[in-house]
């Protein structure tokens, strides 16, 4: 099945793209997707920061099981405000 992955900020720069579609096994968790992406995009590894996970614009835990067409974002440390 396919999921959409969006990259932002430092991860967008490291991946060299802002959005991809990724084929994953049914039952994959968001953490497993991240492992796979690190193999696809070598510059994403090693992860030298704490990442949060968001699926369909809501924060989820690492063991969240992905569904077809989910929109997944790996959230690097946020720094809005001023």
């Amino acid at each position: 099945m396919k999921v959409k992955v969006k990259f932002f900020a430092i991860l967008r720069e490291r991946a060299g793209t802002g959005e991809i579609t990724k084929e994953i096994r049914k039952g994959s968790t968001v953490a497993e997707l991240w492992e796979a992406l690190q193999r696809d995009y070598s510059k994403l590894a090693p992860v030298d920061m704490r990442l949060l996970y968001a699926v369909n614009q809501v924060y989820v835990k690492a063991d969240y099981v992905l569904k077809e067409r989910d929109e997944v974002v790996f959230v690097p440390p946020v720094s809005g405000g001023s």
Partner: peptide, 29 residues
Amino acid sequence: IKKSVPIWKKELFEGGEVWIGTQSGQPLP
């Protein structure tokens, strides 16, 4: 806002640029 809202800032300074916050951990929202 500084803890949970997915907004990031890159500081452009004389001599370089840096994504703020990526050098340390962040609390869970």
